[in-house]
Measured scan of single mutants.
Amino acid sequence: KKKYVIKVYFEDTGKEVEIEAESKEEALEAAKRLAEELGLKIKKVEIYP
């Protein structure tokens, strides 16, 4: 089964997080949740198959 690796870059902090997920949708949801939890804004998202 294919996994996606999503790199999320946050504004202000210069922080980046990698998330593995089964689908792009799932990964983007996780990225949004994470940003909310951390109180950060997402600057850029890169998706690698």
Rank of each mutant, 00 (worst) to 15 (best):
Gly14Phe: 15
Ala21Asn: 02
Lys24Ile: 13
Glu37Gly: 13
Glu29Ser: 13
Phe10Leu: 03
Tyr48Val: 11
Tyr4Val: 14
Lys32Cys: 06
Lys3Gly: 03
Lys41Leu: 09
Tyr48Gln: 09
Pro49Cys: 12
Ile6Tyr: 15
Lys2Cys: 11
Phe10Ser: 01
Glu36Gly: 13
Leu38His: 04
Glu16Lys: 06
Leu34Tyr: 11
Gly14Pro: 06
Phe10Cys: 02
Val5Met: 08
Glu11Gln: 15
Ala30Lys: 08
Val45Ser: 03
Glu16Asp: 14
Gly14Glu: 08
Leu34Phe: 13
Leu38Trp: 13
Gly39Glu: 06
Lys2Trp: 14
Ala27Val: 10
Lys1Trp: 10
Glu37Cys: 15
Glu29Arg: 14
Asp12Leu: 13
Lys15Tyr: 12
Lys44Pro: 01
Lys3Gln: 07
Arg33Ser: 05
Glu18His: 08
Lys44Val: 05
Glu22Thr: 06
Ile6Ala: 04
Ser23Lys: 02
Glu18Phe: 06
Leu38Glu: 03
Lys2Ser: 13
Lys2Thr: 12
Lys15Gln: 07
Ala21Asp: 02
Glu16Met: 07
Ile19Thr: 03
Lys41Asn: 07
Glu46Trp: 12
Val45Asn: 01
Ile47Asn: 03
Ala31Trp: 07
Asp12Phe: 14
Pro49Val: 11
Lys44Leu: 05
Val17His: 10
Glu37Leu: 13
Lys15Cys: 01
Glu16Ala: 12
Ile47Arg: 02
Val5Ile: 08
Glu22Lys: 04
Glu22Phe: 11
Tyr9Gly: 02
Glu25Val: 09
Lys7Val: 04
Glu37Arg: 15
Gly39Tyr: 02
Arg33Pro: 00
Leu40Val: 04
Lys41Pro: 07
Thr13Phe: 09
Tyr9Glu: 07
Leu38Arg: 08
Tyr4Leu: 03
Tyr48Phe: 14
Ala35Asp: 00
Glu20Arg: 07
Lys44Asn: 11
Lys15Ser: 07
Thr13Gln: 08
Lys32Pro: 01
Val5Arg: 14
Glu37Ala: 15
Thr13Gly: 12
Lys24Met: 12
Ile42Asn: 00
Lys41Glu: 05
Glu20Cys: 08
Leu34His: 06
Lys24Asp: 09
Val5Ala: 09
Leu28Ala: 07
Ile47Val: 09
Glu22Cys: 12
Glu36Gln: 14
Glu11Lys: 14
Gly39Leu: 04
Glu29Ala: 15
Tyr4Lys: 01
Glu11Ile: 15
Lys7Gly: 01
Ser23Asn: 10
Gly14Ser: 14
Lys7Glu: 01
Glu29Lys: 13
Lys1Ser: 07
Ala27Ile: 04
Ile47Met: 13
Lys24Cys: 12
Val17Phe: 10
Asp12Gly: 12
Ala31Thr: 03
Phe10Gln: 00
Glu36Trp: 15
Ala30Glu: 08
Lys3Pro: 12
Lys41Phe: 11
Thr13His: 09
Ala31Ile: 05
Ala27Ser: 03
Val5Trp: 14
Leu28Val: 12
Asp12Trp: 15
Arg33His: 05
Ile42Lys: 00
Tyr48Asp: 05
Lys15Pro: 08
Phe10Asp: 01
Ile42Trp: 04
Val5Tyr: 10
Glu26Lys: 06
Ala31Asp: 00
Glu46Gln: 07
Glu29Asn: 13
Lys43Ile: 11
Val17Gly: 04
Ile6Phe: 13
Leu40Ser: 03
Glu36Leu: 15
Glu37Ser: 15
Glu36Val: 14
Leu34Met: 13
Pro49Ser: 14
Glu46Tyr: 14
Lys44Gln: 09
Val17Ser: 06
Val45Ala: 03
Lys2Asp: 02
Glu25Pro: 05
Ala31Ser: 05
Lys3Met: 13
Lys43Met: 11
Ile47Gly: 04
Lys43His: 08
Glu29Ile: 12
Lys7Tyr: 05
Leu28Tyr: 13
Ala21Gln: 02
Asp12Ala: 10
Lys1Gln: 14
Tyr4Ile: 08
Ile6Cys: 02
Glu29Gly: 08
Lys3Thr: 10
Ile19Met: 11
Glu36Ile: 14
Phe10His: 00
Glu16Gln: 06
Ala35Asn: 01
Leu40Ile: 03
Glu36His: 13
Tyr4Cys: 02
Ile19Glu: 01
Ala35Met: 03
Pro49Lys: 12
Glu11Trp: 15
Arg33Val: 06
Leu40His: 04
Glu36Thr: 14
Arg33Tyr: 14
Glu36Cys: 10
Ile19Gly: 01
Leu28Asn: 09
Ala27Lys: 00
Ile19Ser: 02
Lys44Gly: 04
Glu22Ala: 09
Lys3Val: 06
Ile19Leu: 12
Gly14Asn: 11
Tyr9Ala: 03
Glu26Met: 10
Leu38Met: 13
Lys15Ile: 06
Ile6Gln: 00
Glu25Ser: 04
Lys1Gly: 14
Lys2Asn: 07
Ala30Met: 12
Gly39Thr: 03
Arg33Asp: 04
Ala21Cys: 04
Val17Pro: 02
Tyr9Asp: 01
Lys41Gly: 04
Leu40Glu: 03
Phe10Lys: 00
Tyr4Glu: 01
Asp12Thr: 12
Ile47Thr: 05
Glu46Asp: 10
Arg33Ala: 03
Gly39Met: 09
Gly14Asp: 09
Ser23Gly: 04
Val8His: 00
Lys32Arg: 06
Ala27Gly: 14
Lys7Leu: 04
Val45Lys: 01
Arg33Trp: 14
Val45Tyr: 11
Tyr9Asn: 03
Lys1Val: 12
Ala21Phe: 06
Thr13Trp: 08
Glu22Ser: 07
Ile19Pro: 00
Ala35Glu: 04
Lys32Glu: 07
Lys43Ala: 10
Lys1Ile: 14
Glu11Tyr: 15
Val5Pro: 00
Val17Cys: 06
Ala30Thr: 10
Lys7His: 05
Lys43Ser: 05
Glu22Asp: 07
Val17Arg: 08
Lys15Trp: 06
Lys15His: 13
Gly39Pro: 01
Lys44Phe: 08
Leu34Thr: 07
Glu20Ile: 10
Val8Asn: 00
Glu11Gly: 12
Glu46Cys: 05
Glu20Pro: 07
Glu16His: 08
Gly14Leu: 07
Val45Phe: 12
Ile6Met: 11
Glu11Val: 15
Thr13Ser: 13
Val5Leu: 05
Lys1Arg: 15
Pro49His: 15
Lys3Asn: 04
Gly39Ser: 07
Gly14Val: 14
Leu40Trp: 15
Ala21Lys: 08
Glu36Pro: 01
Ser23Val: 03
Ser23Gln: 03
Glu20His: 11
Glu20Asn: 06
Glu11Cys: 14
Val17Leu: 10
Tyr48Pro: 04
Val17Tyr: 09
Lys44Ser: 10
Glu29Tyr: 15
Gly39Gln: 10
Glu16Phe: 12
Gly39Asp: 03
Glu20Thr: 10
Glu37Phe: 15
Lys3Ile: 07
Thr13Ala: 11
Glu36Ser: 13
Val17Glu: 08
Glu37Asp: 08
Val8Glu: 00
Lys24Ser: 08
Gly39Asn: 10
Tyr4Asn: 01
Pro49Ala: 09
Tyr9Ile: 09
Ile47Cys: 05
Tyr48Lys: 05
Ile19Asn: 01
Ala31Val: 11
Lys41Asp: 03
Leu38Val: 08
Glu11His: 15
Ala27Pro: 01
Glu22Pro: 10
Lys32His: 13
Glu36Tyr: 15
Glu22Leu: 06
Glu26Ser: 10
Asp12Ile: 14
Gly14Ile: 13
Glu11Phe: 15
Glu26Val: 06
Glu37Asn: 10
Gly39Cys: 06
Glu37Met: 15
Ala35Lys: 02
Leu34Gln: 03
Val8Leu: 07
Ile47Ala: 05
Tyr9His: 06
Gly14His: 07
Glu29Cys: 13
Glu29Thr: 15
Ser23Cys: 04
Arg33Asn: 07
Ala31Gln: 01
Ala30Asp: 05
Lys3His: 10
Leu28His: 11
Lys2Ala: 11
Tyr48Arg: 09
Glu46Pro: 00
Val45Ile: 03
Val8Arg: 00
Glu16Val: 05
Glu25His: 10
Glu26Ala: 14
Glu22Asn: 10
Ile19Tyr: 12
Pro49Arg: 11
Ser23Thr: 09
Glu26Phe: 15
Ala30Gly: 10
Glu36Arg: 15
Val17Met: 08
Ala31Gly: 05
Ala35Cys: 04
Glu25Gly: 05
Asp12Asn: 10
Pro49Tyr: 15
Glu18Ala: 05
Lys44Met: 08
Val8Thr: 01
Lys7Arg: 14
Phe10Gly: 01
Lys7Ala: 03
Ile47Gln: 07
Ile19Asp: 01
Ala35Gly: 07
Glu18Cys: 10
Leu34Pro: 00
Pro49Asp: 13
Lys43Gly: 07
Lys32Trp: 15
Asp12Val: 09
Leu28Gly: 05
Lys32Thr: 10
Asp12Tyr: 14
Ile6Trp: 14
Thr13Lys: 12
Lys43Trp: 15
Ala30Ile: 12
Lys15Val: 09
Tyr4Phe: 06
Phe10Pro: 00
Gly14Met: 08
Glu46Ser: 09
Tyr9Ser: 05
Lys44Trp: 07
Lys43Cys: 04
Gly14Cys: 09
Val8Gln: 00
Glu11Met: 15
Lys3Cys: 06
Glu20Ala: 09
Lys41Ala: 08
Thr13Arg: 15
Lys1Met: 15
Lys2Ile: 09
Glu11Pro: 02
Val45Gly: 01
Lys3Phe: 14
Gly14Thr: 10
Glu18Ser: 07
Glu46Val: 14
Gly14Gln: 10
Gly14Ala: 09
Ala31Cys: 05
Lys32Val: 09
Ile6Pro: 00
Leu40Arg: 06
Lys15Gly: 05
Glu26Asp: 08
Lys24Arg: 07
Lys3Trp: 15
Lys3Glu: 03
Lys43Asn: 08
Lys1Leu: 12
Glu29Met: 15
Val45His: 04
Glu46Lys: 06
Lys3Leu: 14
Thr13Val: 10
Lys7Asn: 03
Ala30His: 13
Leu28Ile: 10
Val5Gly: 03
Ile6Glu: 00
Glu29Trp: 15
Arg33Ile: 07
Asp12Pro: 09
Glu26Pro: 01
Lys7Thr: 04
Tyr4Asp: 00
Tyr48Ala: 07
Ile19Trp: 12
Val8Tyr: 06
Tyr48Gly: 09
Ala27Arg: 00
Tyr4Ser: 01
Glu20Asp: 07
Lys44Cys: 04
Ile6Asn: 00
Val17Asn: 02
Ile42Glu: 00
Lys44Thr: 05
Ile42Arg: 00
Val45Pro: 00
Glu37Thr: 14
Val45Cys: 05
Lys7Gln: 02
Val45Gln: 02
Leu38Phe: 11
Ala27Leu: 09
Glu25Met: 08
Glu20Gly: 07
Lys3Ser: 13
Lys24Gly: 10
Ile6Thr: 02
Lys15Thr: 12
Lys24Leu: 11
Glu25Gln: 05
Tyr4Met: 03
Thr13Ile: 11
Ala30Arg: 14
Ala21Met: 07
Ala31Phe: 12
Ala21Ile: 11
Lys2Phe: 13
